[in-house]
Design a protein around this nucleic acid. Structure first.
Lengths: 170, 170
DNA sequence: TAATATCGTCTGCTAGACAGACGATCTGCC
DNA sequence: GGCAGATCGTCTGTCTAGCAGACGATATTA
C-alpha cells in the first residue's frame, strides 16, 4: 500500500482515475500470468471473451468493443486463427464483413481461462467483503455499459429507459 | 450500447475486466479532451495529481504509483519542468533521489483541471444515481488501494506455488 | 449506372516503451 | 575506514505496437 496516496484524501480531489488505472493494471497483470496458452495475454482473453459472449457482427464491431484499431484486429485475429481458436466466416448478409466465431478448442481454452480469471479476480478484490465485490461488479458494469463509441447521441434516453433495479441502494 | 454485450450475461462469465477497460478508456478520452494546457494529456493529469497529493518521495516512487517506467518518468518530468509546472529538488536525505514538487503555476493548473475532471466524471457516471456513484468511487478506491508493486509480499509466493489451479482452495 | 460509404487488409512511418549501461550515492559488512 | 552490492536518475540504442493512408471488394443510395 505504500504507493497509494491514501492519507491525502483530505482534499476533494478524486482518486477515480487513479483507482481505475491501478485496478486495471493489476487485473491485467494477473490475467497475463494466467494466459499462457493464449496469444496476446490479457488482450487475447478479452478478445476471445468478446468473440464468444459478445455476439458482435463484424471485426469492426469487435474492435470498437475492445477499443482497438481495426488494423490491429486484423493481425490479432490472424494469430488466433493460426492457433485454431477462432475462425473467420463470411457474413452471408454482407460479404464485406467477416463473422468471427470460436472453434471448439477456443471454447475450451476460454472456459479454462474463465475459471482462472474468476479466481484471480476474487484474489484481486480480497480487500472487499463478498457483498461489496458484487456491488462493485454490478456498478462497474452499469457505468461501463453507458460508454462506447456510439453511446453518446442517445445515452441519456437509453439509460432513462433502463429499469432502475438498484443493486446496492440503501 | 451496440458494443456492449449486455444480453449475454446469462452465463457466468465476468465483465469485470471489460468494464474496467471501457470505463478507463472513456475517462481518459474525456480527461484528454479537458487537458489542453497539460503535456501528455491524461497521463500528465495523473502525474500532476500524484505530485501534488501523493507525497511520494522520489521519481521512482512516482513512477511505481503511476505504473510507468523510470526512464519514461525522466522525459515526462522534463516536459513538465519545461512548462514550469513542477520542479525537481535534490532530496537532502538521499542525494541520489529527486523530490518532485509542483510550482504555483502547477497548482493553479491542477486546480483548474480538477474542476473540469470532476465535471467530466459526473457526466461519465450519469447512468448511476448520485448515491451509487459515491459507492462506486469508494469501493474502487478501497479495491485499488490494496494493489501496487509492494502491497502484497505474499503474492509472489502464491503465484510461484500456483500450478495453474484454483488458488482459493486451502 | 454512377457516386459514395463501409469492410477488411496491407504498407510505411513514427512515437513510445523497454533493456542495458553509466556515474553518483547509499547501505551493510568486514 | 574501505569495499561490495544495491539504488537513484539519466542516457543511448533498439524494437515493437499503433496509426494514417491507400487499396480492392462490396453495399447503399441516387
Amino acid at each position: 500500500m505504500s504507493t497509494v496516496p491514501t492519507e491525502t484524501r483530505t482534499g476533494q480531489h478524486s482518486l477515480f482515475g487513479w483507482s481505475l488505472a491501478a485496478l486495471l493494471r493489476e487485473w491485467s497483470a494477473r490475467v497475463d500470468a494466467a494466459a499462457d496458452d493464449l496469444p496476446q495475454g490479457t488482450r487475447g482473453y478479452q478478445l476471445l471473451t468478446a468473440v464468444v459472449h459478445g455476439h458482435l457482427p463484424s471485426q469492426a464491431a469487435l474492435a470498437a468493443s475492445l477499443g482497438i484499431d481495426r488494423t490491429v484486429m486484423t493481425y490479432l485475429l490472424d494469430a488466433f486463427e493460426g492457433c485454431g481458436l477462432v475462425e473467420r466466416q463470411q457474413d452471408p448478409a454482407d460479404r464485406r464483413a467477416r463473422r468471427v466465431v470460436a472453434t471448439d478448442r477456443g471454447l475450451e481454452v476460454l472456459a479454462a481461462m474463465d475459471a482462472r480469471v474468476a479466481a484471480a479476480e476474487e484474489e484481486l478484490l480480497a480487500g472487499l467483503e463478498p457483498a461489496q465485490r458484487a456491488v462493485l461488479r454490478e456498478l462497474l458494469e452499469r457505468a461501463a455499459s453507458g460508454t462506447g463509441p456510439d453511446s453518446d447521441p442517445c445515452r441519456t434516453v437509453v439509460q432513462a429507459t433502463r429499469p432502475a433495479e438498484a443493486p446496492g441502494t440503501p
